[in-house]
Write a protein that binds this DNA or RNA. Structure first.
Lengths: 156, 156
DNA sequence: GCTTGACCTCAACGAAAGTTGAGGTTCTAG
DNA sequence: CTAGAACCTCAACTTTCGTTGAGGTCAAGC
């Protein structure tokens, strides 16, 4: 067993890469962006604290949720001392991100429902269909069945 | 009422832009990519068939579903004569895209479930947590509680 | 006839999230 | 001690989906 390796208190970039599943180039990139940080050895090589592993995992999770790196960065930067999130921090962040995730799921479901309606709608789905009419603010140009008129034209 | 405008048999790029809600620059772009096409007037201005309105709407819908333009292009190009989709074409395309949409929703829901589990998991969510362990193919390196060992280390 | 708005092309830029490559150093194992 | 793996920096490139700007033409109203 490789027990020794797991117990090292610092990680080289290659180790962090292997253990996090994130490419070395991406870790360099994250560091340039200020998402993670390292100290340097006398030979100028990066050494990461073990907590960085948590930090990287958190970053990837947030990315999967669809949070852009810039936002993740802001969220992490807002923590005191730029520390790697502790339990409480994580709860706060994850609640927020989960809410965003919920919202995105909701939107996609709405889209799917509209889509399903449209598949059989008989006008190639581009008439009287919520999907094809996102852009006109519907009613901005006075009352009346404007949409129908437009749609008839669109369907010509 | 502007009935005349709606009945014109061809659209300028500005008209197409207004009626589709897509910027002129984007329409130019779509045309460069081969997603739509136009004839030219004697003065070298674009004139679009009314069907292009349907085509653009379809493109935007597919984009909202998350289909990259290149894929949309392939799908449209696969139609006979590169025609704008008719009812049957649309049904085929939309069924396929809806399936992708379903899959994306499924993945996000899975992610949310994992996420929810993790929020209170007591280890900053990066131990024994599905989220943080996506990358190791779990078991590739022999049997046993490898994940736990790793995770203990990760959580140190 | 002139002005103004819509249109044209082509090239460059922009953000996001990295990857790739060149050229050079350091670490580790035999 | 030396080969090769792993590391370093910096710049340039990639992809997607367009937008912006410069420089020039066309069309319509007064």
């Amino acid at each position: 067993m490789d027990t020794v390796a797991w117990n090292k208190s610092e990680l080289s970039v290659g180790e962090l890469s292997q253990r996090s599943g994130v490419a070395v180039s991406a870790l360099h990139f994250y560091e340039r962006q200020g998402l993670i940080s390292s100290r340097r050895t006398s030979g100028n090589q990066r050494r990461y604290k073990r907590a960085t592993l948590r930090r990287v995992a958190l970053i990837r999770i947030a990315q999967r949720v669809g949070i852009p790196l810039a936002d993740i960065n802001r969220a992490l930067a807002s923590l005191p001392d730029g520390r790697t999130p502790n339990q409480e921090d994580w709860e706060r962040l994850s609640m927020r991100w989960r809410a965003e995730l919920d919202e995105r799921i909701r939107q996609l479901q709405q889209l799917r429902d509209d889509f399903t309606d449209c598949i059989g709608c008989g006008c190639l789905s581009l008439r009287r269909c919520a999907l094809a009419n996102m852009h006109d603010a519907l009613g901005e140009h006075g009352p009346g069945p404007r949409r129908l008129i437009e749609d008839e034209a669109a369907c010509g």
